[in-house]
Design a protein around this nucleic acid. Structure first.
Length: 309
DNA sequence: TGAATTGTTATCGT
DNA sequence: AACGATAACAATTC
């Protein structure tokens, strides 16, 4: 069970996208696109016929991940980006065969929004129940996209110093900052909650108030939880992203009402920036300001209850 | 049945 | 004016 919440979503974050890329790489690298079709034009930029023309006979020279984007590097220097957003999935279909399920949920034909035919007769399918996913073709040399993304947290450039500078530069709640792809690339709701719990930091803690030791703990927590996610092929919480094992290792996400695995306290669910947020109140003490705000809210609720009798 | 889910963008407030 | 917080929105599932 997931506490009081009836529905959870396993939106692909950095470890899930990395896993998808690794699974697809051998199937796609050195293949050529022979056709592209979209059944939901709004998800494709520029217009589908332009993308189709641009991709025809282009070879995929590299498949990689940047933030939560799947990146196809093409032999003319252009790049094709796929962002899965909330419910996107990419699956490979063998020549003349069924989709390569790898033992996971079957392709839902009605949710296939785009297809790429490959020169070996195989096909790449883009399924996306909620239609929030995006397909974007970038001409050679275009880097405006990359410029808006923060550092990759698993790369060497993401040092303790780099994180300290990011935290110091702005005075924001830690959760909002970690979710901001312009600050750090690749974290989503699950791994942000997990990293903050491991670091013993509250999601509302102002980012510019951390001690050096706390910055170090957060740095370690972010890298460890993402690396662990990749090692376990990501977290599978529902039909969106099957095939991973990380869900059984989560310490707070989706565990409201259950005991903290570190201290035994009860995991709580709050809403921070309109996002469901999971904390251990003992391991992640709220900042003074949020404690005061919480007390004021609680007082007001009590008063209202009294007034109503 | 409606609450829950994310990233982007527009708007509000300080 | 600049920046941070907040709301609205896309569409679907259970």
């Amino acid at each position: 069970m997931c506490g009081q919440t009836g529905y959870t979503a396993a939106v692909p974050e950095l470890p899930e996208v990395e896993t998808i890329v690794r699974r697809l790489r051998a199937r796609l690298e050195r293949r050529r696109f022979v056709a592209f079709r979209t059944r939901w034009a709004r998800n494709t930029q520029p217009a589908a016929r332009l993308v189709s023309a641009a991709l025809r006979q282009r070879e995929i020279v590299g498949l990689s991940r940047r933030a939560k984007f799947v990146v196809f590097a093409l032999n003319d220097g252009a790049r094709l980006l796929v962002h899965l957003r909330m419910s996107g999935r990419l699956s490979w279909q063998a020549p003349g065969g069924e989709a390569d399920e790898q033992g996971v949920a079957p392709v839902r034909r009605e949710h296939v929004r785009a297809t790429w035919a490959l020169d070996d007769g195989g096909r790449l399918l883009f399924e996306d129940a909620r239609k929030f996913g995006r397909i974007c073709w970038l001409p050679a040399g275009s880097d405006y996209w990359d410029a808006d993304l923060g550092p990759e947290p698993l790369e060497d450039e993401f040092s303790v110093e780099a994180l300290a500078a990011i935290l110091r530069r702005r005075a924001r709640g830690l959760k909002a900052l970690l979710l901001d792809q312009r600050a750090i690339a690749g974290l989503g709701n699950i791994y942000t909650d997990e990293a903050l719990h491991r670091a013993g930091l509250h999601p509302l803690r102002p980012s510019d108030t951390l001690s050096r030791q706390q910055v170090e703990r957060l740095h370690t927590a972010i890298r460890d939880v993402l690396q662990e996610g990749i090692t376990h092929n990501g977290a599978s919480l529902d039909w969106v992203y099957p095939g991973g094992n990380m869900q059984s290792l989560l310490r707070v996400y989706g565990r409201s009402g259950e005991p903290c695995r570190r201290c035994g306290g009860v995991i709580q669910r709050l809403v921070v920036g309109q996002r469901g947020t999971h904390v251990c109140p003992a391991c992640q003490p709220p900042p003074r300001s949020s404690r005061a705000a919480g007390a004021a809210r609680a007082g007001r609720i009590v008063r209202l209850a009294r007034e109503r009798g």
